[in-house]
């Protein structure tokens, strides 16, 4: 068992609880012991980074400091945006002693622990798509996806900027494909799998966002995908919940089921309904579940 500090972020705490529940249920099967961080806040998404960047750095430093306090050298995330925010702050703090000193003085003066730079931020996808985690996943996913056609959707902030993320080639990623195949599914290829789902501007610029959102759903649908899988709860929310808006706007009803990565592996690893929580999805996942029952 590898012990990692677990930062679930806002969405997995609230509207995407199914992500947290399935991740927690799956973790032991892929060799992960999760130590959930309790005294942490939102990472600020791109929003606090843009509105109050100095405060963004401090919020993320505080999360890193509490992660370090658990004694683990790894902070695991389940969201692309959290991953970029925390990795960016981490590199800024580790690479600049004067900056770290100032931030630490501020952290200590409000009663938080200081951060010494001892944590590496890793997305759940990275921990289970390579090395020992991947071997365990292959064993755990014994139930299999029975040839289900799955379209991987990476989202942006797990690939770009690659300087800060750097796990795989941002133009030709393969980690999701490896996992889909290990789970007995067939990975569908389509150009928009590395593009944006539009989520960051879906409230402020809905039309612009929907123009982005339709691309992966349309392309995956035309390529014959039974479902899309994504490692990001924000991508999940726009792909799943905003499909009805695409229907209103274009008259096309895609009914494309959208799975969280932990649910895709979870289905293949035999997690039960109470751990997968498919009822929490707006677009029905029933066709996928039925395919697997046969």
């Amino acid at each position: 068992m590898r012990t990692v500090a677990y930062y679930k972020g806002c969405l997995a705490s609230l509207s995407a609880k199914e992500l947290d529940i399935s991740t927690q249920a799956l973790a032991p099967k892929v060799g992960l012991e999760l130590v959930e961080l309790e005294r942490v806040t939102c990472c600020g998404a791109g929003d606090i980074h843009e509105a109050e960047p100095d405060y963004y750095l401090h919020l993320n430093a505080r999360i890193l400091a509490y992660a370090e306090e658990t004694g683990s050298d790894t902070l695991m995330t389940v969201c692309n945006v959290c991953t970029l925010n925390l990795r960016q702050a981490n590199f800024q703090l580790k690479g600049d002693a004067a900056l770290l000193e100032r931030v630490n003085a501020n952290l200590v003066s409000v009663g938080a622990p200081a951060y010494s730079g001892g944590v590496d931020v890793q997305h759940f996808l990275w921990l289970v798509s390579a090395g020992e985690g991947y071997e365990l996943l292959r064993q755990a996913a014994h139930k299999g996806l029975k040839g289900l056609k799955i379209a991987p959707f990476y989202g942006c902030q797990i690939l770009r900027p690659s300087k800060l993320l750097g796990f795989e080639d941002p133009d030709k990623p393969s980690s999701l494909e490896r996992i889909i195949e290990a789970c007995g599914g067939e990975a569908i290829d389509y150009p928009a799998k590395i593009k944006c789902c539009g989520f960051p501007i879906i409230q402020a610029r809905e039309d612009v966002a929907l123009g982005e959102l339709i691309q992966p759903i349309e392309q995956a649908s035309e390529a014959g995908a039974d479902a899309i899988v994504t490692p990001c709860p924000l991508c999940h929310l726009s792909l799943d919940a905003w499909q009805s808006k695409l229907r209103e706007q274009t008259g096309r009803d895609f009914r494309m089921p959208i799975l969280h990565l932990s649910q895709l592996i979870g289905v293949a690893a035999g997690l039960d309904d109470s751990e997968l929580k498919f009822k929490r999805h707006v677009v029905s996942v029933a066709p996928v579940v039925e395919h697997l029952r046969i």
Partner: peptide, 18 residues
């Protein structure tokens, strides 16, 4: 360190990373 300064302060460390 309000405004853009909050982003600029982290740039040297990120350049070093590259």
């Amino acid at each position: 360190r309000g405004g853009a300064a909050g982003i600029v302060q982290g740039e040297h460390a990120l350049e070093r990373l590259e």
